[in-house]
Design a protein around this nucleic acid. Structure first.
Lengths: 252, 252
DNA sequence: CGCAAGTTTGACGCTGCTCAATCACTGTGG
DNA sequence: CCACAGTGATTGAGCAGCGTCAAACTTGCG
């Protein structure tokens, strides 16, 4: 299963051949995009749903004073803006952090696949719920933790998600094409303070960071510092549909 | 239409008689709960979906050090924890801010209504997307704005939501059964600093606050200070389903 | 090689936190 | 009807985590 989209939805429902076929059809023809560019800007009329097949993207929003909040990182298999259906215009921008492969799916096509395959609709809904859970963790992170804990928590989360996407090396390191400025805009800090905090994490031998890679040297201690537990990401165990079947004695 | 749940879902889809009937059936028999109590605590096995019919609830989460982040306020018509389906156990708690009427819907019942009425399923999904958008605004708020702007933004949001629920008085004031401690845990500030910031907003004649009510005296200036614009709440205009039909030339 | 972008470090200051005391409000019981 | 307790609001004094400003250094790339 090399299609990260199908791999991801399989965490939620058990897909039949027809459904796999439909998803493969949806994700045919990814286009190559250069890193540093934006897929879509706040205010644009959304026509496509962007599906990331390879690379890194991020969702962000600007304030009038120029400050920026990064709202999510998007990894292979993630839909960038399924909430497009609601919007007359985009309420956030999506940028690419490195060269990436992206499928642009016309919004109507997503809708008709959902109409045809209720299971896919439900899987997409569940994916949305995971995104929401992640957002809640981010809010907790930004609202309540100090700089040291914030960065630790972010790194723990990214490690788990990258692992689930099969993108962590044997030595435990993974690509992190993110500048300290971006880490700052993610956590609500300044890049100067991020820099000092990274130095501390490095000095304490918990991480190695540089040349766009992160290596977590001491995962246990990092998770301890962050107060991290990975349940909210729902990357482990059998598909949600199966768990639900067991729990409620019925098919979702 | 006195049923706030139906009223809310009607913002997303045009409901037929059967669907209205099903929703009315779902929301029969609200139970009375006392304010200050919790509906469900983090770690509990979720069996019911809580539907708030009257009153105020909030979603929150604790850190081990005892600090708390409030993640959402729930108003009449809101489902408190539809994401229950995903969870083996609750990853957040839900508390009541005042005496409230709540329907406890068995999780399986929600599922079977969604199976029977795709439109309702889609409306619930859209409601989830609005929640997610709100969460993104909160993240922006907590991450990037200062205390003065944070509180202004929160008040603007609550005013719009209360208005949509038909709970704002003619004089523009509305019930806000929230202590300064809770405002602090919402915005990532301390109650002392919230107090000082409220004083400033009062001194500048933008709000009146007290005895569990908020009166916004100068909505324009408050929105200006906050950088608030209400689109993300999707309380205005025709139902999303209709807009979509116009936009895509097809039925969602 | 030389620029551009990002990282690192220092000095200093402010927003918002901590600690703590006092005040106001509301509901309770004698 | 009043004393009292508990909760929340208010205010002050002092402080620290993180921000600002600025300069130097490092890295990647055409």
């Amino acid at each position: 299963m090399s299609n990260p989209f199908i791999k991801k939805l399989s965490r939620f429902v058990v897909l039949g051949d027809e459904e796999v076929g439909a998803l493969e059809h949806l994700s045919r023809n990814p286009r190559d995009f250069k890193g540093g560019h934006d897929l879509i800007l706040e205010g644009a009329k959304p026509e496509y749903v962007f599906l990331l097949m390879e690379g890194w993207a991020y969702r962000y929003k600007h304030l009038k004073d120029g400050s920026r909040q990064i709202l999510a990182y998007l990894l292979p298999g993630d839909l960038c803006d399924i909430h497009v259906f609601l919007l007359d215009e985009m309420d956030n921008s999506i940028g690419l952090l490195c060269d990436s492969k992206v499928v642009m799916i016309p919004a109507g096509e997503v809708l008709s696949v959902m109409d045809q395959f209720p299971k896919i609709e439900r899987a997409l809904w569940w994916a949305t719920l995971v995104d929401e859970g992640t957002l809640r963790e981010w809010l907790l992170n930004v609202g309540q933790r100090n700089a040291y804990q914030k960065l630790s928590h972010l790194f723990c989360e990214l490690a788990v998600r990258m692992k689930a996407a099969g993108l962590v090396d044997d030595d435990g390191s993974f690509s992190l094409p993110v500048t300290q400025i971006e880490l700052a805009d993610t956590t609500g800090l300044t890049s100067v303070h991020v820099n000092r905090t990274l130095k501390r994490l490095r000095d304490e031998k918990m991480i190695t960071i540089g040349s766009r890679r992160l290596h977590i040297l001491d995962p246990e201690r990092l998770a301890e510092v962050a107060g991290f537990s990975q349940e909210y990401l729902h990357v482990e165990g059998e598909p949600v549909e199966m768990k639900l079947r067991t729990r409620l004695g019925k098919v979702g």
